[in-house]
Design a protein around this nucleic acid. Structure first.
Lengths: 218, 218
DNA sequence: CGGCGCATCACGCGTTTATGCGATTGAACG
DNA sequence: CGTTCAATCGCATAAACGCGTGATGCGCCG
């Protein structure tokens, strides 16, 4: 399909290595879908530019920078331009750094070992709502994710309906609201609550909510 | 570089839709780097084969299957062949399902909207140690990851004492118990509770506990 | 078929909570 | 030195809650 070409992605690059900057600029020139509108050699300048004028669609950001480091820069960039997609491009694969960058608001994390086409594709991916990462980075994130998100093994034999009720409890709803949300009588919700309390071995709403969230029952 | 061609990835596919199976088989035939060695139409047969013989390098697994569903199958596959890379390929984008699949041991998660080349690339990626995901899935995982890994920076200006009370609330204690634990009058606890509710913008104990735990305030 | 678990609904009682209205103290800050 | 604010305590009331004790219908399974 040769649809009308979509507007090119306006990209800024923040990278202190001039040679690498040039290489990137060259590869984007041939890519077509990405328009490299500005280049910076440190994060401060990029930040100032963000605050001064219209933001780009995406920023390709190195971590190792003179002065303000890349990871700290992420939050600042996001504060100045919340909608901008920040993709990290670095040689560092240190997991701590990776996680901090992502938590600070980065949309993607690439290693400089990635081929040029992959970098262009990743930027497009990030702007389109994805989260491009180099394979090893993705695997590390996934590993940590599983560690954090793995549901507790204790299911406490809650029925499906009881889980529904429990979930709404964790959203702070009161009995009547739960009843309305599930189209039930408040009496029925009462029954479910009682059963939940018995199964979770708790006696109060707060304890039930706490147990549910701590043990990831919902 | 035309190095000697690496050994093709031995792949099994578990997918109940015969037409889609054929389409996949065709696309892999043209890909070259992937050798589709076995095809199954349900998870039970695949599991039996895994237990019986040598495992493949990767398994492409649908979620919606007759009988044993794909997500439950992941753990079983992993138990039978820990080294195998499991890549989910499904139409479902339900986040709960995605997270459960990844926690169960899947290495990747693709939507069936992905183009054929992307699927082949993803399998190679997974075998090479990556974690291929469709953009929207990756973003959802990243979002949840940040939620879990990033301590909530919202402190809501809670005072030290209020945090004490909040923490005890998250342990399921009632007002009187909190008072005893902190050697306070129940009236004082009452005051703290009121202030906490105001600062957290909630109106009930359950909501306060939920917010505290979800946003890592304690 | 007959039990069993689940979901649904119902009532009542005593307790806890949420939320008004206060007050006094003491530390912090300009 | 006066103001501010957290921390402590007091009280009253209406609403929500916890908990016991029911009942009815439905589907499943041996």
């Amino acid at each position: 399909m040769n649809a009308t070409q979509p507007a090119a992605i306006r990209l800024w690059v923040v990278e202190d290595n001039a040679t690498y900057q040039d290489a990137l600029a060259f590869s984007f020139k041939t890519s077509g879908s990405i328009e490299l509108t500005r280049q910076f050699f440190n994060a401060e300048d990029a930040r100032a530019a963000l605050r001064a004028g219209p933001p780009p669609d995406a920023i390709l950001l190195d971590v190792q920078l003179p002065g303000l480091d890349g990871i700290s820069a992420i939050s600042l960039f996001k504060a100045a331009a919340p909608a901008v997609c920040i993709v990290i491009l670095t040689v560092f694969e240190d997991h701590r750094k990776v996680f901090r960058a992502l938590c600070a608001g980065a949309s993607g994390y690439l290693l400089k070992t990635a081929p040029a086409e992959r970098i262009a594709a990743a930027i497009a991916d990030a702007v389109a709502g994805g989260a491009p990462m180099s394979p090893s980075v993705a695997r590390a994130v996934l590993g940590r994710f599983v560690e954090l998100a793995a549901p507790g093994r204790n299911t406490y034999d809650l029925s499906a309906r009881e889980r529904d009720v429990l979930e709404l409890m964790t959203q702070g709803l009161v009995k009547k609201e739960i009843a309305d949300r599930l189209t039930l009588s408040p009496h029925t919700v009462n029954s479910h609550l009682k059963n939940i309390y018995v199964k979770l071995h708790v006696g109060t709403r707060g304890a039930a909510v706490a147990k549910a969230l701590k043990e990831r029952l919902v």
